[in-house]
């Protein structure tokens, strides 16, 4: 029992610290690729710290739902982070929720954030909420198919079990089904974290934004919680991708050495995936909203092919 608490504490610290770093790294890398200097990789920490020290403006029209949403976003993202193996195959809360709980808890956070967007009565909030719920709804089947492909291989939806199986077959990602599932999940990752070509995280241009439109009325500590929560969600989804498909370095033992090595491997894998995201973001223009379903349809078909190829190969 105490082990669970210690594990959770350690992983919580890791989550809270690495998530802003990852967002910062992606921003910096993107700027460099576009030959800008860009902000430093620590900028996200500064942003969160700054927002926590600001006064808050609550819209006159808002109810308690508006105030509840940031907590739900932050709470669900961090809780989900504790269900995912990061440096070792053993996630602290893995027993209490597998990959289905992960998907549905993230949906719970999104549900409240969308309500928060609509609560103010502003058209932007409604616009953002409507688009966010729409895109997440059509991303969901592709995500589940890809996840099922992996879960069926491990015969479990429990993420620690999946990681344990994955570690024994490190080169399994070369199998067609795994590659297809990875491609499907990568597209879903782009959509779920609001990145180009689905959403532009850098824009505040009225007609193109999705996530930013929804949180337009938030300020101060609430905005800090939402931004922090969003970066943790991004970290969680990226971790899910790198650790399920490329389990290199995941330690099964609980020694300082093994965990340290696991951490180095983990950060390296995250950096590689971040580079891939940056490449995709820089080389693509934003899609029109009604072209996004086609992209997600591609993800769904990739997921279905992945599933079919599990029993062809």
């Amino acid at each position: 029992m105490t082990e669970v608490f210690i594990n959770s504490g350690l992983q919580l610290v890791l989550l809270l610290l690495v998530a802003p770093l990852l967002s910062g790294t992606i921003k910096t890398l993107k700027a460099r690729l576009q030959t800008r200097r860009g902000p430093g990789i620590l900028q996200s920490y500064r942003d969160i710290f700054k927002l926590l020290r600001k006064g808050m403006v609550i819209p006159e029209t808002a109810s308690w739902i508006f105030s509840a949403a940031p907590y739900m976003v932050f709470g669900t993202a961090t809780l989900v982070g504790l269900m995912i193996p990061m440096t070792t195959t053993h996630a602290p809360l893995s027993l209490f929720g597998g990959v289905l709980a992960v998907v549905y808890l993230l949906a719970l956070g999104r549900f409240f954030l969308a309500l928060g967007g609509l609560d103010t009565g502003s058209s932007f909030g409604g616009l953002g909420s409507s688009r966010e719920m729409t895109i997440s709804a059509i991303a969901e089947p592709a995500m589940m198919l890809a996840i099922f492909t992996v879960a069926l291989g491990a015969n479990s939806t429990n993420l620690s079990e999946m990681a344990k199986i994955a570690v024994t077959q490190s080169w399994r990602f070369l199998a067609p089904s795994q590659m297809l599932a990875f491609a499907a999940l990568f597209i879903v990752l782009i959509a779920e974290t609001g990145r180009l070509p689905v959403d532009n995280p850098a824009t505040h241009l009225e007609l193109t934004m999705i996530h930013e439109a929804m949180v337009l009325e938030y300020s101060g500590p609430y905005l800090a919680l939402i931004e922090w929560g969003a970066s943790i969600k991004q970290l969680v989804l990226m971790t899910l991708l790198v650790n399920t498909f490329f389990p290199f370095g995941l330690s099964s033992a609980w020694t300082v050495q093994a965990v340290g090595l696991g951490l180095v491997f983990y950060l390296a894998k995250l950096l590689l995936l971040a580079c891939l995201i940056v490449l995709v973001e820089t080389s693509n223009a934003k899609l029109r909203l009604f072209r996004v379903p086609e992209l997600l349809m591609v993800a769904f078909i990739l997921g279905a092919l992945a599933l079919i190829s599990t029993f062809l190969f």
Partner: peptide, 9 residues
């Protein structure tokens, strides 16, 4: 740092 109510944008 305070918390105020204000109009929506």
């Amino acid at each position: 740092f305070g918390r105020t109510r204000g109009p929506v944008w």
